[in-house]
């Protein structure tokens, strides 16, 4: 089963859960399953149209999905998927 690492800012919407494990064929399926289980996450990940917000970076292993097949990137069992937040600090 693929494992999704949830960044700290999103754990507020997953009751503190940091890892989500799920059988999923693609990155899109995995993220959809996560959002179905934790609906509060939905606006933080997806646009109203349902597509992943353009600035969110998702990695399968060390590879950015933009360099793979995007949300349609196929997942193997034991793949580790990560959502990387933008940097906060600044102003």
């Amino acid at each position: 089963m693929a494992q999704l690492i949830i960044p700290t800012p999103l754990r507020k919407f997953t009751d503190g859960q940091g890892i989500f494990t799920q059988e999923a064929a693609t990155v899109k399926d995995l993220l959809a399953a996560l959002a179905a289980q934790h609906p509060g996450l939905k606006p933080h990940l997806f646009e109203d149209s349902g597509s992943l917000r353009s600035f969110i970076r998702v990695y399968v292993g060390d590879e950015d999905i933009h360099a793979l097949e995007g949300e349609d990137t196929a997942l193997q069992a034991n793949d580790e998927v990560s959502i990387i937040p933008a940097i906060a600090g600044g102003l």
Binding site: P9, K12, R53, F55, I83, P85, A86, A88, G90
Partner: peptide
């Protein structure tokens, strides 16, 4: 507006 964002330097205070 959202917990994850592309505005380097900004904080979403609700989740940070």
């Amino acid at each position: 507006e959202t917990a994850l964002h592309g505005l380097e330097g900004w904080k979403h205070l609700e989740t940070a």
